[in-house]
Amino acid sequence: MRMDKKIRMKARKVEFFYGTTQILHGIDLDIFENNVTAIIGPSGCGKSTFIRLLNRMHELVPSARLKGEITLDGKSITSADVDPVEIRRKVGMVFQKPNPFPKSIFENVAYGLEVNGVKDRHFIEDRVVSSLKKAALWQEVEKRLHDSALSLSGGQQQRLCIARCLAIEPEVILFDEPCASLDPISTHKVEELILELKKDYTIVIVTHNMQQAARVSDHTGFFYMGKLVEFGRTEDMFTRPREKRTEDYITGRFG
């Protein structure tokens, strides 16, 4: 048995509600450093809801209510006195649909730095270039940094969103079905990128695609109807699932 790595984030007894509807029931889950943790499950199982708790994006919905605790490096991120803005600087997010701002490519990547108080233009320029390189987009946009980000293809836009997220150097990156609207080639590029990024970052990815979870992740959690049915190392889960429902889902019998 390989030694498990350090745990960066922990969810303990997480219950989540929209108004009076309970979405998540008693979730306990660990996220390991420099690992990719995949969250899989059928539509409506609460996996996207769960990942949004990890950087408190759920608070955008006024009726959202959370019980239990989520920690980052042992410190609670969910208690009321923690500023969500601080958490989001440490826990970045890439969304399902590429959502670059209607600004230039450069401005998109620089935005996160600027709102976080960076004033030094040289620093910003260097960081924009290095982030685009890390996101494997530099070669394609090198000569058109000041073109609108909306002129890029869907796959390029998604890698731009990843670069934008990398620019503020988060510690954990959340991917919410990052390939859902991409073609197979772009999907492949994003997956390669995720494998590359896990050397420096801790990654959580929600995906509908079982093969994708098998390809990129080290740990997998299977959500079903708001419960975490099974959590474990990806290879174990895909070869010897402990739960009948997990097996049914990953072999395609439902979902």
Partner: peptide, 14 residues
């Protein structure tokens, strides 16, 4: 689009 707002907040903007 709400996606712009979410992107901005997720980058640590208030």
């Amino acid at each position: 689009p709400r996606a712009y707002e979410e992107a901005s907040l997720a980058l640590g903007a208030n």
